[in-house]
Design a protein around this nucleic acid. Structure first.
Lengths: 208, 208
DNA sequence: AAATCCAGAGAACAGTTGTTAACTGGATGA
DNA sequence: TCATCCAGTTAACAACTGTTCTCTGGATTT
């Protein structure tokens, strides 16, 4: 059912993506609520009015960026939580995955961390919804584990939120250390690992 | 050694505080990096140029706001962690304290949550430093507890950071629910309580 | 081949912004 | 009392903003 786009639609998507990319770049030094429409079009090299062919407003573009930054992350989350080795290995793998993702997509990570509590309501809501989906997916994966016997759905979800928030905090720390030494990153990884381990221990003794 | 300020200095401080208050109010609907100097002075009712008598820039004002929002919180943190009742009671008291603080100073809490990862570097750094101080103080309090026997300083600090981050997340959730029903806030309190309890359990079994 | 569509350009709009310089007038200290 | 100080004012600046309307020319459809 795949349909090759006409040259017009293809060109449109190209411009749209250029706008998203330019915005993401400009957002490394400011927040979405101060990003100007003209600023973005100038960076791309199109007329300011062209912006309206793709987005109703900057807030609208922000929501699209949320989808771009988090939408493709769901399968990754699932498989990470699923990996059924020892608890310590799973934690190590998760931390590695976070560090790798921050290395590969620093601007996306920065955008999410910044705008999660940022000044644009619709974007905050979009991020909140995506993170809630993550938590639900993590919770569903946790439920499959035999270690989840006796856990209420409510408690599984509360643990899943704890994991998701912890991942975001860790990602944000890795981000700050992007220009730092490898040693800095190693320390962050070690602290994050131990925090995850402590949570994991709490999980194991939850039903005592 | 208290010296009553001259009327000139008193008036100056009054204007300065008015600028801070107005900025905090305006920041409920936007981020610091989009806050305009003229916007602030207009809200106060003074000339734009008067701003420079008090702050070098909006970023500078932001740093002052960080001090105002977090500076007075250190003693409160200390006494909360110290309270040496049962673990569950301590947790309940901490959650109550957070909820109360959010109710009393919603704009300050919002500012910190928003600008912690916001678009202004000097403000991010100021918040990071204050939170690091919190973590160190919490860590020092934890060390006094006999439950901390056998813990390395490193691990105490990692636990303290976990607590501090968890408090901020909880505060941010209470903030979102400020216009919600009492039921909403009750659910948040319950989830936060259980997360704290899980961490507390992990702490008790850390040395196993 | 002709008619339609539509992404992007261009020009103009009223408002806004940060920053400068020179000033005023009441509080301050000699 | 008189000279100094300095928080706040006034006016002006070039530069920027979001949004509107009109137009163009190549892709698309008939």
């Amino acid at each position: 059912m795949s349909h090759t786009l006409g040259i017009r639609q293809a060109q449109k998507q190209k411009t749209r993506q250029a706008l998203l990319d330019a915005a993401l770049g400009l957002l490394e030094g400011q927040s979405l609520s101060s990003l100007g429409l003209r600023e973005v079009t100038r960076a791309v090299g199109v007329a300011p009015t062209a912006f309206y062919r793709h987005f109703r407003s900057i807030a609208d573009l922000g929501v699209a960026l949320v989808e771009e930054a988090l939408g493709s992350l769901h399968p990754m989350i699932r498989t990470t939580v699923t990996a059924a080795d020892s608890s310590d290995e799973r934690i190590a793998r998760a931390i590695e995955l976070i560090a790798g993702h921050v290395d590969a997509y620093p601007a996306h990570v920065r955008f999410i961390a910044r705008e999660r509590h940022g000044g644009v309501q619709s974007v905050r809501e979009a991020i909140r919804d995506q993170l809630a989906r993550f938590a639900e997916e993590v919770s569903a994966e946790l439920a499959k584990d035999r270690a989840a016997e006796g856990w209420s759905e409510e408690d599984l979800l509360m643990l899943a939120h704890l994991y998701v928030d912890q991942m975001l905090i860790t990602a944000s720390l890795f981000l700050e250390a992007l220009d730092g030494t490898g040693e800095d990153r190693e320390r962050i990884a070690q602290v994050a690992t131990r925090q995850m381990r402590l949570i994991s221990i709490g999980r194991q003794h939850w039903l005592d």
